[in-house]
Design a protein around this nucleic acid. Structure first.
Lengths: 204, 204
DNA sequence: AATCGATGTGTACAACGTACGCAAGGATGT
DNA sequence: ACATCCTTGCGTACGTTGTACACATCGATT
């Protein structure tokens, strides 16, 4: 009835198998279009079979969030610019590209809530995400070269990232006149911010 | 069966009546917790009665989006700072306050998608929202006084707003260590950006 | 061959959005 | 006063969703 797979009765590869199916469904239908039943069908399993591997739908969504986030981290890691300011420009462009070319994966990575339990001790930090850490490293480097203003690294990094994500968030909510306008304003704003965060020339 | 109101069989106040009920449900249960049935119950109407006044659930959500947005516009309008830079700081704080004290209303205002039909001609502009327009007016004023860098007004305004919204968006997705950290970083980043957007002193 | 834990299935239920047809109120014209 | 009609509300019903629960079946272990 559920078009069940007859091959192996499974060797613990099932969780990954389900996750792949979920990624396909996510890519095609978006977060809201992803249902347990659709994932099950694509995985050739009965809907209830998923519950042996994920506590509930939220757990599955959380796995997709982590997958999306690690895809994003790989993109960030692969940026090759030597100059730290160029690197920061490149990551801004990569962010935009990720949001536009893999929209549902982006949504999973950035919009799905992290499980509350996973939150950090409290006086310590959003700078825990590997992606933010990589940005911070470049900000530090630029600061060391005297090419960014002398402000807390975390604040600079987060301001840039939050601005980018804010733009995407507004775009998702249909707040721009179209993708064209969104792209143009996104890029202009990122360049503006990066420029503005350079040290004031008076100090020399 | 649905605990119906026996009073007036209605004098066209019903749409507003439903909307009020929806606002209460939104405030208590959030966007995801809002269902047609719950709104109907609170309005003392049958679920199907709502469909005489709203085409579907999305139409109701859209009304809530507009309500939230106009609440936000009123907040912005009521900011009293004379100095444009102080005004821009005040709106940043008001944004944070709105997000924290009326979270579900904020979500409705900023996260719910605008109906696609309502999008603008295309080369023209996100600066159409009254809230953005008010920010732009102050940015212009500050620029005229030589107290902000000479960059396109829309870009400056959007960079500030998008950064703020991006922070909120990340907070909603549980990306900070807690509300305390979120508030601190939000404020620090907004001050950093506002500082950075001042004109470079070399130009004098 | 008997047992057992891990994995998969089928059925069932409550909650959801909403299509459809009908009923009942208020307004209007006579 | 009555008949007409439009507006508004209701009840029922269907398909879809997440998932609780009881049962079945596999592979491994004894």
């Amino acid at each position: 009835m559920y078009n069940v797979r007859k091959d192996v009765y499974s060797v613990r590869m099932t969780r990954d198998h389900i996750l792949s199916a979920a990624k396909v469904v996510l890519e095609r239908e978006g977060i809201d279009g992803l249902t347990i039943r659709k994932v099950a069908q694509r995985a050739e399993l009965s809907p209830m079979a998923l519950y042996r591997h994920f506590a509930d739908k939220d757990a599955l969504l959380n796995a997709l969030m982590e997958d999306g986030m690690s895809a994003w981290e790989n993109i960030v890691r692969s940026i090759r610019a030597h100059d730290p300011l160029e690197w920061l420009l490149a990551i801004a462009d990569a962010h935009l590209d990720f949001a536009l070319t893999q929209p549902h994966r982006y949504d999973a990575a950035f919009f799905l809530p992290a499980p509350a339990a996973r939150r950090f001790p409290d006086d310590f930090a959003a700078g825990r995400s590997p992606a933010i850490a990589m940005v911070m490293a470049r900000v530090d480097q630029a600061k060391a070269e005297g090419r960014l203003c002398d402000r807390p690294t975390l604040e600079i990094a987060l301001a840039l990232v939050a601005a980018g994500h804010g733009f995407v968030s507004m775009h998702r909510a249909n707040r721009f006149a179209g993708e064209k306008q969104f792209k143009a304003l996104y890029r202009a704003a990122q360049r503006l911010l990066l420029d503005s965060l350079k040290p004031s020339r008076e100090s020399k």
